[in-house]
Structures are given as C-alpha cells and as structure tokens.
Design a protein around this nucleic acid. Structure first.
Lengths: 114, 114
DNA sequence: TGTCGTAGTACGAGAGTCATAGTACGAGTG
DNA sequence: CACTCGTACTATGACTCTCGTACTACGACA
C-alpha cells in the first residue's frame, strides 16, 4: 500500500491544520485525530510536528491560543485551544490557491510520462 | 499572482527531475530550463537545490552520471549528464502513485471549506 | 577586452520534521 | 488502592532539504 511520506505532505501541514481550525477552534490531540480521519488513515501527523506548527503559526499571527475546559461544566483537564485569526484565514486562502497551482504544475510533469 | 513556494513543492523536486530524465538523459542547466518551461515559469528551481538533488539521488542509486560532449563532434565543454537507473524508475513510479494519493488527501481537507 | 550565457562547485545558515523521552491528569479495572 | 490506558501535551537534539551567497571556468560575440 502506498502511504504518504511526511516529506511529500510537508508543505501542507499548516494548510490541513487551518482547514480544521477554520471550521471550529480545536486543540492538538483532537486535530491529530481529525487529520487521521479525514485522510482515511493515509496520513498521521506526528505530535511534535503538530505542536511545533502551532507554535510557529501562533508566532506568525495565523492562530491564537486560549485555555479552556473540555466541557461547559468545567470538568476535566484544561486544554489549549487554537482559533484562526483574520490573517490566518487570509493565509489559508492563499494556500488553497497555491495548491490549485501546484497541483496543475505537478500534473504537467507526471503526465509527461504517458 | 500566486507563485509556488519551494516549501510546498519541496517533496516533488526529485519527482520532477526524474520525470524529465526518464525520457532522456540530461544535465543540470538543461533540466532547470525544462522545469521552468514545463511549469510555465511558475516554478524555478534553484541551482543549489538541483545539484544537491543530483548528488543525493546518485548516492541513493536512482540516477547515474556520465560526462559527455555536448554534441557528437566533441565540440564545447563537457557536461555531466544523468540517466535514471532501474531503481530510480521504480522510485519514480512509487512517487507518482504517492502523488495520486496525496492529491486526494489534500483535496479532502481543502474541499471541507465549501 | 569585456560581457553574456552556459555549467557548474563550495559553504554555512535556517526551517521543518523526527525520534526519543518525559510529565501529568482522569477514568476504569482488578 | 495500585495500575494501566487514553488523553494532552513539552523538551531536546539530530537530520535533511533548501537557500543565499559566492566563486570558478569556458566559449561566443561585439
């Protein structure tokens, strides 16, 4: 079975994370499970990769963190949630456009084999 | 205009180079021009990136180098040409399969925005 | 002679990912 | 009540690929 190497998906970690956060603020563990689910198990992001993406994107102003309880009653251990900023939304949109372009370009090379 | 960042195409430099070499052995300068042409100027590979890809892929047994004259009459400065090995062909085929998968996976994330 | 295009090599910095390891809490089981 | 499992992270240093910068060297042409 073909699997996706991190080398290949490398440029899209931020995009994947943002695509999830843009719908609803979330936190590390949940996002890693989401990525696995959405990719149908073909891509499993490493914890360290994920958390360092958070740090980087927060530093760049694309996301903001806030600590919150897991449920409204305040039960359980607090988690660090992230939400996408305006700038992050913009960044995400650019990444989506860039993806369309990249896809076309790579297809041009690969199709050459025919 | 949207341009392709090296960060995003990073995982595909080897694949692009191999897609060219698989058709006909070539050399650095020519390949860099080919990449620019095939990508319609959207992606210009850096010299250092290209040559270090050669070194790496030769070390991994995906390509082989040979020095040859630019034309049959032996005029001009000799160049270092590269050809794809059996192992490189296999590697390329895997990368193509991986591309199909990666494409589907990324689309799943991006399409979520709709 | 000088510049342009060709065809590279050398080197060190930087970014992102990874392996590894460790912390800490709550829930459930025996 | 101890233990394990799942959850939810943090720390550190290594590694790889790409990049900026700089340098070499040849041939053609003005």
């Amino acid at each position: 079975m073909v699997e996706i190497s991190s080398d290949v998906i490398r440029g899209y970690n931020d995009t994947m994370i943002l695509s999830i956060l843009i719908k609803v603020p979330s936190y590390g563990y949940e996002i890693s499970k989401q990525i696995k689910k959405i990719s149908m198990g073909k891509y499993i992001i490493k914890e360290t990769t994920l958390y360092s993406a958070f740090t980087r994107m927060e530093k760049n102003g694309y996301i903001e963190s806030f600590v919150a309880d897991p449920d409204p009653e305040g039960n359980g251990k607090k988690r660090t949630y992230y939400r996408v900023t305006e700038s992050g939304t913009e960044y995400y949109r650019n990444k989506c456009e860039e993806w369309e372009l990249t896809k076309d370009v790579i297809e041009r090379f690969i199709e050459e084999k025919r």
